[in-house]
């Protein structure tokens, strides 16, 4: 997929920052699938995920000036926009009303129940996630896919903050290894 890219990344970024419509069309053609996949990891409902994807591209369009190439790749920047937009969506009132029986718990004691519902049949990243040990998997699920801070998780799971941080990092390193081996 990356090999299909005909723009150099710096060139593409420059054009995007000039609000070049052609560059944005190219961006959509080449990145929408991967970003939709990121969103899908958090929101499985196709219609809602589509809405979020739309929102993500609008956000990219609006925030493109703030992207700093020295701090990371364009895709990484967009991935985080997609992830944050997805988390915002599942935390929104309308989302929680729609789910009704599946509220995102304010009481973090329910977090573990939430993590049990993890769909390990999901594609890509989440599929890899299923291979992690449970103690690691739930922490990734809570922090990466549900956007809880380390402090919130530590409090909710009654685990020391340092332990949360260490476990998450260990989990991430394992994820990386699995991703690179894929």
């Amino acid at each position: 997929m990356i090999s299909k890219i005909t723009y150099g990344e710096a060139e593409l970024v420059a054009l995007l920052q000039q609000r070049n419509n052609q560059a944005f069309t190219y961006l959509y053609d080449n990145y929408s699938g991967a970003l939709y996949g990121i969103i899908n990891q958090i929101i499985s409902d196709r219609e809602s995920a589509s809405d979020v994807l739309q929102e993500v591209f609008v956000n990219i369009w609006r925030k493109i000036e703030t992207y700093d190439i020295s701090k990371g790749r364009l895709f990484t920047w967009m991935l985080n926009i997609a992830r944050n937009a997805s988390i915002d969506k599942i935390r929104s009132k309308s989302w929680q009303n729609d789910l009704k029986n599946q509220p995102i718990p304010d009481d973090v004691n329910m977090l573990e129940d939430q993590s049990v519902k993890l769909n390990t049949d999901s594609i890509g990243f989440k599929k890899i996630l299923g291979k992690l040990k449970e103690e690691h998997r739930s922490l990734i699920e809570l922090s990466y896919f549900q956007g809880y801070t380390h402090e919130e998780i530590a409090k909710g799971l009654s685990i020391p903050l340092g332990t949360v941080k260490t476990r998450i990092r260990t989990a991430l390193l394992q994820l990386r290894t699995m991703i690179e081996q894929q």
Binding site: G33, A34, Y36, G37, L53, T76, F125, R176, Q182
Partner: peptide, 14 residues
């Protein structure tokens, strides 16, 4: 790696 993984497993966007 992350990018490659995301592209390799990318679904078709609506």
């Amino acid at each position: 790696s992350l990018e490659k993984q995301a592209f390799d497993n990318a679904p078709k966007a609506p």
